[in-house]
Design a protein around this nucleic acid. Structure first.
Lengths: 199, 199
DNA sequence: AGCTGTAATTGAACATCGTTCAATAAAACC
DNA sequence: GGTTTTATTGAACGATGTTCAATTACAGCT
């Protein structure tokens, strides 16, 4: 066929990302192939490559949308106006719940390792910064009288840790004895970490 | 050709794992292909499939060797007979150093997500348990008078956290401002966590 | 209407991937 | 030396990401 113009380039982009989300949600990371995405939106492979540089590009953009969702969930939770440690619990719970509910999508945030010298797009770093920012301000209002730099660093440490717990749980690298839930582990972390900082 | 018997099955297995390690160290995770491994050890693809169930199996066994190395490094460090928080720092440092020095290999420990109902082999879980056990006993001797279950859970939380820091650093998902090293972040974590527990 | 130029879309082609298995060649046995 | 056994091969299959000449449909002009 030739020009159809049923959809603008931007529309195709959105359609493709939507279809890709569904495919990943359904069959996990490995199920995502260019041909499947194309078929799902009624186009062929070639068209995809007019809109995305390559599959990695598509995945990156999909990850962007995942980060947006994640941020939104955490923001909603924060607006329930908890304070102190409770607010941190709430953030962690929102994060963990999302990761468990949408585990294939969430997994993909890490699965794509950046190639040797491949850089991460600025817009992606910005989205990441948003999430960390949220933790930062919550932590700041929880442990008083610490300088900004310490808070900023502690927020990163704390969130990387929550993240680590999430990973090992979801990838089942941790279910040797113990039998705590991810949420309980995160609480234990936050409890002790915050306690340690407030001295 | 027919029977050559230059190498026993077990020898081929070891040769293949060695070659695979080299390939991953050189070109990262994506560079590992069956044909490359086969060529590197002077056999053809078919032979590989007599020794390994499939590529996932090979990767799992390779991961087993990685876990062994990791455990050994941490054990060596522990035998420098530090005590208290210093011992935990030492363990974390050994872990982080290994992850940074052998990042492609270390990455592979996570990259292979277990298929839907695919279970992890027992021997693999055992190797994982070894590493956690090391942290457990070190933590136990650092924070006194806590019951075993708490220690065991705390060890998992703490190590998942160190792991999380490692991941975000190595995959460059964390270099927004701050500029702490992985080691510094781990120290901050251990400091506050242990401090929080000892109250 | 008809012609023409432009641009959107296609899908066959290429190299490579994991995986399988009939065919083959070398050792072992009698 | 002939026969059996078995380790090893490599062609074959289906599926992958990616490319690009060929094709088709629309827009504008006469």
């Amino acid at each position: 066929m030739g020009r159809r113009s049923d959809h603008s380039r931007e529309e195709i982009r959105q359609l493709a990302l939507g279809a890709a989300e569904a495919i990943v949600a359904e069959g996990g990371f490995k199920a995502l192939t260019a041909r499947k995405v194309a078929a799902a939106i009624g186009y062929t492979v070639g068209t995809l490559y007019l809109v995305f540089e390559n599959l990695d590009d598509l995945v990156f953009q999909l990850n962007g949308r995942t980060l947006d969702q994640l941020y939104q969930r955490m923001l909603d939770e924060k607006h329930h106006s908890y304070s102190g440690k409770k607010a941190l619990y709430a953030l962690a719970t929102a994060y963990i719940d999302y990761a468990e509910a949408e585990s294939p999508r969430w997994n993909m945030l890490l699965e794509y390792v950046a190639g040797k010298d491949e850089v991460m797009p600025d817009w992606y770093l910005e989205k990441l910064g948003q999430v960390f920012g949220l933790v930062e301000e919550t932590l700041a209002s929880t442990v008083g009288n610490q300088d900004d730099k310490t808070i900023s660093q502690a927020a990163r440490v704390l969130w990387a840790s929550v993240h680590g717990i999430c990973i090992l749980k979801i990838r089942q690298r941790l279910d040797l004895a113990g039998g705590q839930s991810t949420g309980e582990m995160a609480c234990m972390l936050i409890d002790n970490f915050v306690e340690g900082m407030s001295r």
